[in-house]
Write a protein that binds this DNA or RNA. Sequence first.
DNA 1: TAAATAATGTGTGATAAATACACTTTAAAT
DNA 2: ATTTAAAGTGTATTTATCACACATTATTTA
Lengths: 249, 249
Amino acid sequence: MTIETTAQTEQGVTEITLIKDAEKLVASYPRVPITVDCVIFGFEENELKVLLIRSDLEIFKGEWSFLGDFADNNEELDDAAYRVLRERTGMDDVYLEQVKTFSNPRRHPGGRVLTVAYCSLLNIQHHHLKKMDNELHWHNVNAIKTMAFDHKEILTECYKWLQKRILEHPLGFNLLPEKFSLRELQNLYEAILDTKLDRRNFRKKFFAMDFLIDTGEFEDDVPHRPGKLYQFNFDKYEKTKRKLTGIDF
Amino acid sequence: MTIETTAQTEQGVTEITLIKDAEKLVASYPRVPITVDCVIFGFEENELKVLLIRSDLEIFKGEWSFLGDFADNNEELDDAAYRVLRERTGMDDVYLEQVKTFSNPRRHPGGRVLTVAYCSLLNIQHHHLKKMDNELHWHNVNAIKTMAFDHKEILTECYKWLQKRILEHPLGFNLLPEKFSLRELQNLYEAILDTKLDRRNFRKKFFAMDFLIDTGEFEDDVPHRPGKLYQFNFDKYEKTKRKLTGIDF
DNA sequence: TAAATAATGTGTGATAAATACACTTTAAAT
DNA sequence: ATTTAAAGTGTATTTATCACACATTATTTA
């Protein structure tokens, strides 16, 4: 009993020493500020959009950038990305995934800053930009020519990521309203993949997967025959492994 | 002319001011030490291996970890990863790809350290561990139970990455000797994907792609009918978009 | 109220890819 | 000469991809 206590104490002391050693080692190495950047995709008027804000750096005055922020001390980066989303858009139940870390030492004019890019997909109708906030804007992804920092490069990488990811995982539903027509779904895929798809094959493919629930409702604001509205079946989505590859091309 | 010079000077002055502002902003944010960790896969005796080193932290005495290092000031992380490979294995023309950033604030006992995991694939026969260096060891990937830091988690992610990546990109050749038999190639795929493949379909698949060059040579150290030796056709590999998906399952 | 418009909804046949499956051949070892 | 162990090869079935056209329906316009 005495021995056991001693052993424990000794072990405790040793561990504290070892942690001190580790701390000393870590303290001796260069440190870098870390940011997260959220590349937030949306879909509206048949176009793939991305949510940008005017850079808050004078040197990039007028240029657009992603929503981002420095990571707090002891904040996990996923949490930082969710925090940025919450703080800037008011949403926190969105799809979010880490994509890539960018480390060019000259990417930030204020010195070396490392950034981790996160892609987020959100339904524009669920998110209403504050009217006065004209620093925030949804941009057509294909129309963006230049951005602040290395953000154009980040956008390119994230857009490629999205094109690939949407073929192996039906992420697109995160971008649509809760109830959507098959045309809207197809338009979304066409916008993201930047291609035309055959309507019959597209429908066949999606009906073959059991992702779609027929709501029995129809569109009611279209100047032509209204299409049926569907909902996404999240349960099936979790269970299936079926890929979306090979939609027509 | 005078005006132009003045304008240039003024613009220069302004830019310097703006950069100072940016520097001030960056200086005000938390900084974190960054490491890269190289998850180096190899293939030997029909098993997928990963190259590990005994942790240099006393607190992890005896535990295994990836080859890693802190990023130098102003060093791009890809370069840091290549540097680690070069310094520790003597190789620098290896396949290397960024996989994921790990940021749990408690992942390092010496305080917050962020790490970026890189996967590397290398041909074990081209790399001869220094005989005395018994701190470095090739481990069977499936036999690893615990590791230092969060390296077991990193391994899991990188192994998943490899399994996925090898189906869309013929990376496997990086792990094989220059000349290899189809059996070796199939064994490699079976080891990585952890599954059995049909020999005829596997051959059909690889011959259909034009990745293989028939060397006309045969194995000569096997206790049975020797197989033909092939080389990988890097030119075709660059040109093709053909996927490796759907090998038998 | 008839005609024009614009998109919905539906099926089949052709081609290509994935999969399942068994026997003969060859070289080395015994 | 026999055994062993793997190489090498072909076909038939099923599944997925892809190309393609016409009737239907609600709205808008003349």
